[in-house]
């Protein structure tokens, strides 16, 4: 029974036979109810997945949480090791990724919003940036491997660069969106006062868009903090304490990857602790970013 036909039957002509009208109405109500129930079920299922993930992390990770995790470096299985070097490594590489990616992203976003307009080049850049936004992260790892690692060896800086490639499109998108929200009258006012265009952008637009761009950067940080695939081929992971940027560097996702698949119980336990830390870090960043953005909407 098509929706349109039944609408016409009910709304257009009064049905001659009340029995038919009743049946029709009953059927329509029933299909409406079925659809409603199914949709609620779908939402519940998705929420159940989230709950299951968080519950599992808490159940298996919380028990292993102790001071040793934060003060001791990774050790061979059974050696009562911690996660100090993966945590620090993650922080360093995320910092590099953000520090390199953010300025580039903001510049590109500014170009798109303020200078490019609807030009062909602008559209091409916008399109490519959108594609990069959802490009498989493992390819970015391969790319950095080809560019920096091949022949030169794995290094923490290569890991950071790979992450920065992920940061750029995210920051581009939010920067452009936020700058577009700024009323033209603000810009015109600045220009009318004799400010050159760059001054109007830097002093007026950036200030007004600051909240939004910060949100974008936070989301980007949250995204790269949990990335594993691009780091596999760039920073490789390191079981020893090392802060040298030109040497292989450990990171939380890589440690989780290595430990989760291992047969040693205490390694698996550490993997869960790492997973707990990283997930709650990432989720907290997301919540903060979203709450910060909210009043703007």
């Amino acid at each position: 029974m098509s929706g349109v036909a039944s609408i016409a039957a009910v709304a257009g002509q009064p049905a001659r036979d009340p029995g038919v009208a009743n049946r029709l109405s009953r059927n329509r109500k029933r299909s409406n109810r079925v659809a409603t129930v199914l949709c609620i079920a779908a939402t519940v299922v998705a929420l159940a997945f989230l709950a299951s993930i968080i519950f599992t992390l808490l159940r298996l990770g919380f028990g292993g949480l102790s001071l040793t995790v934060f003060t001791s470096v990774t050790k061979p299985a059974g050696g009562n090791g911690g996660l100090l070097n993966p945590i620090v490594g993650s922080l360093i590489q995320t910092a590099i990724g953000t520090a390199v990616g953010t300025p580039i992203g903001i510049l590109v976003g500014t170009y798109l919003s303020e200078y490019a307009g609807k030009s062909i080049l602008g559209n091409a850049v916008r399109f490519v940036s959108d594609v990069l936004l959802s490009a498989p992260s493992i390819l970015i790892g391969l790319f950095i491997y080809e560019l920096f690692v091949n022949g030169r060896g794995y290094s923490g800086i290569a890991g950071g660069l790979a992450l920065s490639v992920i940061v750029i499109p995210i920051v581009v998108r939010t920067t452009e969106d936020m700058l577009k929200l700024i009323p033209t009258s603000l810009r015109e006012a600045a220009v009318a006062l004799g400010a050159p265009k760059w001054k109007a952008i830097v002093l007026i637009c950036y200030r007004a868009a600051l909240d939004g761009i910060t949100t974008g950067v936070l989301l980007a940080v949250a995204r790269i903090a949990g990335e594993t695939a691009p780091l596999l081929f760039t920073s490789l992971g390191n079981d020893n304490w090392s802060l040298a940027l030109d040497k292989p560097m450990s990171s939380l996702p890589l440690a989780i990857y290595k430990y989760a698949g291992s047969p040693a119980d205490d390694w698996v336990q550490l993997a869960w602790v790492g997973a707990l830390l990283i997930t709650f870090g990432v989720l907290a960043l997301n919540v903060v970013a979203r709450v910060a953005l909210r009043p703007r909407r």
Partner: peptide
């Protein structure tokens, strides 16, 4: 709240999905 929860599902790192998948 539900919309945010669904978005958080997107924010969970993929390696966590891997572990969750493997152990649960």
């Amino acid at each position: 709240p539900i919309g945010t929860a669904i978005e958080l599902l997107a924010a969970v790192p993929s390696i966590i999905y891997g572990m969750w998948g493997f152990f649960v």
